[in-house]
Amino acid sequence: MFKSLWNYRYFIFSSIRNELRTRFIHSKLGALWMIFNPLAQVMIYAFILSNVLAAKLPGIENKYAFSIYLMAGILGWALFFDVISRSINLFVDNANLMKKINFPRMALASIMLGSCLLNNLILLGSILVVFIFLGHSFNFTILWLIPLMGTVTLFAFGIGLILGVINVFIRDVAQGMPIVLQVLFWFTPIVYPVTIVPTEYLGFLKMNPLFPIIEAYHAVLLYGESPDMTSIVQLNIIGFLIVLFGLFMFRKASPEMVDVL
């Protein structure tokens, strides 16, 4: 499988490029929109939360601490959300191509993952720019984001692949997923700090696999600290196993997939 993907590497790269290109081809500013959009979004959060709502985060002096907290969480969540929702529709969206041309199907997954990661990197860039404006300093611990993004991607892709395969046969999966994702979003400390969660619910919240990941994002971006390694390593192992299982399902399903698409 990896060998055939390697043979298709130029196709994968050019597909990612074309995807970006077609998205902005009709706009005058072109690729600049890729930066403007997340930048505006992040700046709105920073302005509203800090100046209008005056939300404060205990223990940090910076007036913009809460917006920084929010941005860090959103960065992690956005990647998870993108990868999982695009994985679920991966085969259904590309049905036309799969029904006509024989090529390694995992090239589609690589294109999707590449484009999600690229989008997330652009979001990260915008966030860092805003951090500089807000006077928030960051240091080399930010490099932790590289393995963290890997963890999120692994986890999201594993689950997404399994659901994506099932979605080919039972289309209800894609319909129900937004609801599940919304619940998951609110059960993850992204828009609220962990400290305000009542202790009786905290144990429940910690069962959420995204909990340690998002907390790690907070540690790295907000506090400039290294994340808690044990839970991240655990998550990587679990994520890896889920991906393996997803690939197994995909192998079993692929002869029948085109039949029902």
């Binding site: 298709y8 130029y10 050019s14 290109r21 077609t22 081809i25 191509l97 041309i101 090529f103």
Partner: peptide, 20 residues
């Protein structure tokens, strides 16, 4: 099959050959 209307023939040709 698989030509993207917004891309030039040149880009589409690269894409199709890659797909093949």
């Amino acid at each position: 099959m698989g030509f993207s209307p917004d891309l030039t023939a040149r880009a589409n040709v690269l894409q199709s050959l890659g797909l093949m």
